[in-house]
Write a protein that binds this DNA or RNA. Structure first.
Lengths: 232, 232
DNA sequence: CGCGAGCTTGACGTTGTTCAACTAGAGTGG
DNA sequence: CCACTCTAGTTGAACAACGTCAAGCTCGCG
């Protein structure tokens, strides 16, 4: 759904076109433009900080980000890895205000920061737009929840297979890709130890399912990987 | 948030009052009333079936339900346990239509089934109402996600402690309660084996933290339970 | 040339699951 | 009224899965 909506978006004006063509008057577009700013984030930089007040909704139009959750006594945890184009932070919009997660650039990113109060104001006037946003946000949280469910009761093989398929299909959109994440980060996404992630990946390599050379990953036998994912 | 909204609701007319007083015209209320029905569900009966098309949003005003997720080769999984009053199924409203979870009565329930198309129609006309619903739904999914995160990286002690605290605080709202769920169901909620759940519960009992006699559970030392939950 | 970060491997101990056996209570049919 | 059976709860023992530790490797960068 989100892909369908944001397909072919590769510059900032596209977002206005997206909303505008269907739902927004030209003065509304000007209002958003006047209260938003385009920012560039380097790898590792924080777009949204956990615990801070929500002030912006972020439209990511270039790069890859991760949602992380940190808590004392806990290991870090990566909740999602998302590539542009994507709308981020919408779910926090009407929560009393604090961001529950951090959003961090995994490679260099370009994003449009949209003032949350301006957006709210527009949504109040325009229920079609509000419902569209509702739709986008609930679709995204549905994906996260399904991901959680899978990770919650699969074993290591299934988890690693899931991650590889996810990276291939949803993030890099290719059978062969150059990772912008470390093994440690991927293990935090899978919810397993780094060492266990590595040994499992190597096992897949020995079985001829993937090739991995440090940051270069290639999925050789996708059908087999899907089978492993299914069996858990 | 949801508690605040639904506080003091104990009959069907209250839901209309809730929406109506603030946002709805009286003819809208009549429209909902004419397209909704009050139903009673016995323990174990299905309110919403996974995979079916979303046709209704459910306002649960009496009883306790569980959200479950089933998949071939998988163990059952319980995602949430929720007591009335609560709004259920809102997140699916604008997904292309299929329910991702089942909703099953854990004890006898009374619910108001609101036709989804009628509600959509109202939301289209009334953006304040749409945003309110957005707010409720995102608050609920936030709770689920935090719950998932906790379960994902805690050990058995922490998981069981979490479950007991959750049942006490959010479901039965008392230090002492009579379970309407089996040990097996609670283990599916915790994401651990039934046997491991039982042994851990018994260990807590030996340590003087809880009393458990079959369906009767009493939390004796809440502070200790919270500590265990925190330590994981 | 050396240092550090990321990656890799094997050995070991902990944690959690599975299996099997037993108990108690509730419902059923003779 | 008494077997009989079925389900839920319980316990201990064997086994498998996973995380931790220790050590070595490679590569890029100062």
């Amino acid at each position: 759904m989100i892909n369908e909506l944001f397909a072919n978006l590769n510059n900032t004006s596209a977002i206005f076109k997206l909303f505008g063509d269907q739902y927004l008057k030209s003065e509304d577009i000007e209002l958003i433009k006047g209260n938003s700013q385009k920012l560039i984030f380097n790898k590792g930089e924080v777009l949204i900080k956990q615990g801070s007040r929500s002030t912006h909704v972020v439209f990511l139009f270039k790069g890859i980000i991760k949602h992380t959750y940190q808590q004392e006594n806990y290991k870090n945890m990566i909740l999602t890895i998302t590539s542009a184009p994507s709308l981020i932070g919408g779910a926090n919009m009407f929560n009393d205000g604090k961001n529950i997660f951090s959003v961090i650039a995994v490679e260099s990113c370009e994003a449009f920061m949209i003032d949350i109060n301006i957006l709210k104001q527009l949504l109040m006037q325009n229920s079609q737009l509000a419902l569209k946003l509702f739709d986008i946000v609930s679709e995204m949280s549905k994906d996260s929840i399904i991901n959680f469910i899978n990770l919650a009761h699969k074993h290591v093989n299934g988890k690693v297979a899931d991650i590889l398929l996810y990276l291939s299909e949803s993030v890099y959109k290719s059978q062969k890709f150059t990772l912008s994440l470390t093994r440690r980060e991927l293990s935090e996404f899978a919810g397993i130890s780094e060492i266990n992630f590595i040994t499992t990946l190597k096992k897949f390599e020995k079985d001829g399912i993937v090739n991995s050379n440090c940051k270069e990953i290639e999925i050789v036998n996708k059908a087999q990987l899907e089978l492993i994912s299914k069996l858990g």
